[in-house]
């Protein structure tokens, strides 16, 4: 593992980021890594074209919840390090909204921890999405299916 890599890295970005550059800068020589990259969909929940997606969060509480989830899941799955990058603010379709990456000594712990952490972020971290179309915003009422 690189000496500069933190065990848990969590960042909220209000501007676009390149997930591949971020991963390259973060990753170490650990044997297994699992990643998830989520992008803004082209369509709204009702199936019509989406103009933009706005993401609001509760500053401070949001980062702390993700950090607590990451700490717990690292231990539960015996993984070694976690990277979570999450956008906030206004995003366009196809822009990256979330990157979750986990390193571990084995593929199982890396993959299971990555999946569990993404689900924890979706259900426990105080983020709220609003879909914009024709200048009208609609708050999203639930998460997309797994």
């Amino acid at each position: 593992m690189g000496v500069m890599q933190e065990k848990i890295t969590i960042q909220l970005h209000n501007t676009i980021f390149d997930p591949w550059l971020q991963l390259a800068a973060w990753s170490s020589q650990t044997a297994a890594a699992a990643t998830f990259i989520g992008r803004v969909r082209e369509v709204a929940q009702d199936g019509r074209p989406l103009e933009a997606l706005e993401l609001t969060h509760y500053p401070g509480m949001c980062e702390e919840i993700i950090r607590q989830d990451a700490q717990r899941l690292l231990m539960d799955h015996d993984a070694s390090s976690v990277l979570v990058l999450h956008r906030v603010g206004r995003m366009l379709p196809s822009e990256v909204i979330v990157l979750v990456a986990v390193e571990a000594d084995l593929r199982g712990p890396a993959q299971r921890c990555c999946t569990a952490l993404l689900e924890a972020i979706k259900h426990q971290a105080p983020f709220w999405k609003r879909e914009w179309r024709d200048g009208q915003g609609t708050w999203v009422s639930g998460n997309t299916p797994l």
Partner: peptide
């Protein structure tokens, strides 16, 4: 004191 609608992140 904060009131929080259902979360929809990720």
């Amino acid at each position: 004191v904060a009131f929080l609608p259902p979360f929809t992140g990720g």
